[in-house]
Amino acid sequence: MPVSTENMVRVFGRPESLNESAFSYCPGCHHGVVTRMIAQAIDELNIRERTVVIAPVGCSVSMYQWFRCDGTQAAHGRACAIATGIKRVNPDLIVFTYQGDGALAAIGTAESIHAANRGENITVVFINNQIYGMTGGQMAPTTLLGQWATSCPEGRDGRLAGHPIRFAEMVAQLDAPVYVTRQSLFDQKRLIAAGRAIKKAFRYQVEEKGYSLVEVLTNCPTNWRMGTLEANKHLAEVVVNTFPLGDFVDRG
């Protein structure tokens, strides 16, 4: 028997900033959650018509195709330089980059650090899942010591392959950034906090306060070779020991 929706109250729906296309992420992956949170922040701040999505190279390479916003796609690691170019010539636009650990903290370290150091009025969302997802599970600059990856089959050895980079802490050393935070998504409390942090980062940009970085600790069940629940448990119990959560800078 068909259910009538006549007397139902709509409490949850697709954000208006997203179009009808389906995300291309793996089941259980946190990417989709963060993408949705960004769309929701854009809706709530009523900035869809001003917002520019800068997609990285990585699993979210085509994320601009899901937004009802203007967008572009960056060469691997160059998103913050492209964001700088766009924002400087058209400061009315709300510009955000969405980058993984490879783009932000390896190949694009220079662009990422210097955009932060100039205090570009942009929002950087950093997905730290400690692994290279799209290319099939190689070591990332954020891979934990001892963690297995296809390019460190014996586990990451700090003496040979360096140590996990704490990017938020690095950026927090700079004078210019107004908001630097690390969030995660492994339980309800963290989900709500992360959504608020993303919205705050966008709000600061709207208020012309300057550069924000929201690092989000996320999972990668596929390349971690874990089930979703196990992956979230790993985040909560292991990953946070290397990457502590919290605000590092809030000059808003």
Binding site: A74, A81, I82, T84, G85, I86, R88, V89, A110
Partner: peptide
């Protein structure tokens, strides 16, 4: 807009951004 970029790589990508924005 003038920016002395952190590298030639950053500079050309800033151009990419400015060009994409129509300038």
């Amino acid at each position: 807009v003038f920016i002395q970029a952190e590298s030639e790589i950053a500079a050309i990508n800033m151009c990419y951004g400015a060009a994409a924005a129509g300038m």
